[in-house]
Computed example of a mutant assay.
Amino acid sequence: MDTPEYPKAKVFIIVEIIEYVPNSVVIKTIIKKTTGNVSAVSFDSGEMLTEKTSPFDTFIQVIDGKAEVVIDDVSNLLDTGQSIIIPAHCRNAIKANVRFKMISTMIKSGYEDLPV
C-alpha cells in the first residue's frame, strides 16, 4: 500500500499532525521519494520498532517525550529536541519507555558505489 505524502504548501505544526494511539506505533508520511522519506511517528508507552538494519543512514529527532534508540546494542536516551543519526548497516531498535513522538528522515543516496 502506497502512503500518500502530507499536503504541500500547507503550514503545519509537526507535533500536532500525529496523535498517540493506545498500544500502537503510528507512522504518518510527510515526504516519500525514491531518494528518501520523512515520517512523523508516535509511540505509546511500552511499544517499540523491533531490531532491524537499513542500507541507509536514518536521522531521528524526538519532538515530544523521551525515546530509547538502541544502535548495535548501545542504548541512547533522547529527550525532546534531541537527535541521533542511525548509521547505515547498523542493527537498531527504537523503544518507548514512555510515550513519545519523533521525526524519522532517511536519505537513500550516497551508497550507490558501495559493495553490498
Rank of each mutant, 00 (worst) to 15 (best):
M1I: 07
M1A: 13
T3I: 06
T3E: 13
T3A: 14
E5G: 08
P7R: 08
P7S: 08
P7M: 09
K8T: 05
A9V: 02
K10C: 05
V11D: 11
V11S: 14
V11I: 14
I13H: 15
I13E: 15
I13L: 14
I14T: 11
I14D: 05
I14R: 08
I18Y: 02
P22F: 04
P22I: 02
V25A: 06
I27L: 08
K28M: 07
T29C: 11
T29S: 14
I30P: 02
I30D: 06
I30R: 02
I31A: 10
K32D: 12
K33F: 05
N37W: 04
N37H: 12
S39T: 10
S39L: 12
V41A: 01
S42M: 07
F43G: 00
F43M: 04
D44E: 13
D44A: 13
D44R: 00
D44G: 04
G46I: 04
G46H: 09
G46V: 06
E47S: 13
E47P: 00
M48C: 10
T50C: 09
T50Y: 15
T50S: 15
K52A: 07
T53N: 10
P55I: 06
T58V: 08
T58N: 09
T58E: 10
T58S: 15
F59R: 05
F59I: 09
I60N: 00
V62N: 04
D64E: 14
A67E: 02
E68Y: 01
V69L: 05
V70F: 01
I71V: 11
D72M: 03
D72H: 03
D73C: 01
V74D: 05
V74H: 09
V74F: 11
S75W: 09
S75D: 02
N76I: 01
N76R: 04
L77I: 13
L77G: 05
L78M: 04
L78D: 01
D79G: 09
G81F: 09
Q82G: 02
Q82A: 02
S83R: 03
I85T: 11
I86F: 01
P87K: 03
A88Y: 07
A88P: 00
H89Y: 12
R91D: 14
R91S: 14
A93G: 07
I94T: 08
K95G: 03
A96H: 04
A96N: 07
N97I: 03
I103D: 04
S104F: 01
T105M: 15
T105N: 11
I107L: 13
S109E: 09
G110L: 09
Y111L: 10
Y111P: 00
E112W: 10
E112A: 10
E112K: 04
D113E: 15
L114N: 06
V116G: 14
